[in-house]
C-alpha cells in the first residue's frame, strides 16, 4: 500500500438516506461518514439491501442524501457536491469522476477504441487524433490494444469489463466508483480487474470506491468498510492467504 495522503479528497459527512413513506419507510444510510483518500482502493461490502449502492450513488453525486454532506476536493477546496447546481454537478462529474458498473453497457456498434474516444470527444477532453492516441494508450495499459477494432460482440466478458474500466479511467478521474465490477466475471478475470483498479489507485492517485459482495477481493484493497442496516464500520484487512 502506498503512503496515504493526509487529506481526504472525498468526504461523506453524517449522511442519511431513506426510501419509502410511512410504514414502508426504510433507512438505507443512517448517519454514515466516510473519508476517501487519493491513491486508495476502498472496498465497501455488506449484505444485499444494506445500502452499499445508495452510499456509492450519494458519494458520486448521482443521488441526493436526505441530510449530511458530500465534500469533494475541487481545485484545492472541499465543496459540497449537493449544494452545487445540477449543471455544476454534471461538470464536476465530467471533470473528476469515473464509473464502472456490473453490466458493461458498451455501445454494441462501437469498437473498443471508440468506446473510449466517445468520452474524450463528447466530454471535451480531446478530439480527433489526440483522442485516438489517448484511447490507444489506455487500451495498451489494459492489454487490449490488439482488440481496439473489435466491437463488444467479439470481446469476452473480461475484455468487455476492461474496456468499461478504460472508459472510466481514460479521462484520468480523481474519483472512480465501481459497482460490483467483478460479479459477472470468472475469478481469473475478476482478479485482473481488481489489479487494474489497484494500479489505477496507486499509480494514478485516484480514489476508488468498489462495492461488492465478494470477500475474495479483500487482498486487493487498501481499506475495507462494512455496511449493514445503514451503519458503516471500517474493518481490518485480512492479510492475503488467510
Amino acid at each position: 500500500m502506498p503512503a496515504v495522503a493526509t487529506n481526504p479528497t472525498l468526504k461523506g459527512v453524517h449522511l442519511t438516506r431513506t426510501y419509502g413513506d410511512g410504514a414502508k419507510r426504510r433507512a438505507a444510510l443512517r448517519d454514515v461518514s466516510i473519508d476517501l483518500f487519493p491513491g486508495q482502493l476502498v472496498l465497501l461490502m455488506g449484505p444485499s439491501g444494506s445500502g452499499k449502492s445508495t452510499l456509492l450513488a450519494v458519494m458520486s453525486g448521482l443521488l441526493e442524501p436526505d441530510s449530511g454532506q458530500v465534500l469533494a476536493e475541487d481545485g484545492g477546496d472541499l465543496r459540497d457536491v449537493w449544494t452545487m447546481t445540477p449543471k455544476e454537478r454534471e461538470d464536476f462529474r465530467l471533470r473528476t469522476t469515473g464509473f464502472i458498473f456490473q453490466g458493461y453497457n458498451l455501445f454494441p456498434a462501437l469498437t473498443a477504441r471508440q468506446q473510449l474516444e466517445i468520452v474524450l470527444k463528447w466530454g471535451g477532453y480531446a478530439g480527433g487524433a489526440e483522442a485516438r492516441r489517448q484511447a490507444d494508450d489506455m487500451l495498451e495499459k489494459l492489454g487490449l490494444l490488439p482488440n481496439r477494432h473489435k466491437k463488444p460482440a467479439h470481446l469476452s466478458g473480461g475484455e468487455k469489463q476492461r474496456v468499461a474500466i478504460g472508459r472510466a479511467l481514460v479521462k484520468d478521474p480523481t474519483f472512480v466508483f465501481a459497482d460490483e465490477p467483478t460479479s459477472a466475471l470468472d475469478w481469473e478475470n475478476g482478479q485482473r480487474v481488481m489489479e487494474l483498479l489497484r494500479d489505477a489507485a496507486h499509480d494514478r492517485g485516484a480514489s476508488i470506491l468498489v462495492v461488492s459482495h465478494d470477500h475474495r477481493l479483500l487482498p486487493y484493497v487498501d481499506v475495507y468498510y462494512h455496511l449493514e442496516d445503514g451503519h458503516l464500520e471500517e474493518r481490518p484487512l485480512i492479510p492475503a492467504g488467510h
Binding site: 454534471e90 461538470d91 465530467l94 464509473f99 458498473f101 468520452v119 463528447w122 466530454g123 472510466a168
Partner: peptide
Amino acid sequence: ILLALGIP
C-alpha cells in the same frame, strides 16, 4: 453511463 460520466 455517459450521463454518469458527466457527458452533457
